[in-house]
């Protein structure tokens, strides 16, 4: 009997160790869940406003001459698999930009130039909404050189090249940098980012993608 008891001890210790490992894994998994539920974008986003108050210059390559006014109807971002219709956005009663009522579609701010016109065209979309990933849920993954296509009502397609991706605290949003005059046809894609403040029910940052018009083309 004594010999048998001695043989069982290592197994009991092994079971206890396994139980401990399982508990640790559970706690770590719950931590990962807590982090994952915050939909936190990656930390590799730059902040070009740190250089000066002007918007980032177009990345390498040529910038096309602006094209006439025509409202946008659809946006495509091939590298992200985004293909969304566009609605029209105005201002709310507080003077802030309206946002689309759902995760889809994205919206074009009608107070700004149309994509391809001289100046910064502005398109906003949700990162998430009502339990669904939004049209711009992966916007922070864009990198300089990526392409964005905006289809217009006149049948043309304005092709843009990403110049930069920036993340700004909402309380210090650089309005003039994002919406200010530029010397070419540009595009601003805007969504939320950073940590989510559950008390304020709002994200702390905005992610802004700066892009330049490279021509009426197809992708």
């Amino acid at each position: 009997m004594r010999h048998r008891l001695v043989r069982r001890r290592p197994r009991r210790i092994l079971v206890r160790v396994l139980t401990g490992v399982a508990a640790v894994c559970t706690v770590f998994g719950l931590g990962l869940v807590a982090c994952g539920l915050q939909e936190t974008p990656g930390p590799s986003i730059s902040s070009p406003v740190a250089v000066n108050g002007a918007p980032p210059a177009p990345a390498g390559g040529s910038v096309a001459a602006p094209i006439p006014h025509s409202e946008p109807v659809r946006i495509e971002i091939p590298v992200l698999g985004v293909d969304s219709e566009l609605m029209t956005l105005g201002l709310d009663s507080g003077g802030a930009m309206q946002v689309p009522p759902g995760a889809y579609p994205a919206g074009w701010y009608k107070g700004a130039p149309t994509p391809g016109e001289l100046g910064p065209a502005i398109i906003a979309g949700h990162i998430n909404w009502n339990g669904h990933a939004g049209v711009f849920s992966k916007l922070y993954e864009l990198k300089p050189g990526d392409q964005v296509a905006v289809h217009r009502r006149d049948g043309s397609t304005a092709l843009f090249r990403v110049d930069d991706v920036a993340e700004y605290p909402k309380h210090d949003f650089p309005t003039k940098t994002v919406y200010g005059n530029i010397d070419h046809a540009g595009l601003r894609l805007i969504t939320c980012g950073g940590d989510f403040d559950s008390d304020a029910h709002s994200y702390l940052d905005n992610i802004v993608v700066y892009a330049s018009f490279v021509g009426p083309a197809t992708i």
């Binding site: 994952g36 003077g95 802030a96 701010y109 107070g111 939004g134 989510f196 709002s202 905005n206």
Partner: peptide, 21 residues
């Protein structure tokens, strides 16, 4: 070029969980 500058930031997310979450 932007006729009326929108005030402040853009509220483009409600923090709701995604299916992956």
């Amino acid at each position: 070029q932007v006729e009326v500058l929108p005030a402040g930031a853009v509220a483009a997310g409600d923090g709701s969980t995604s299916p992956a979450g």
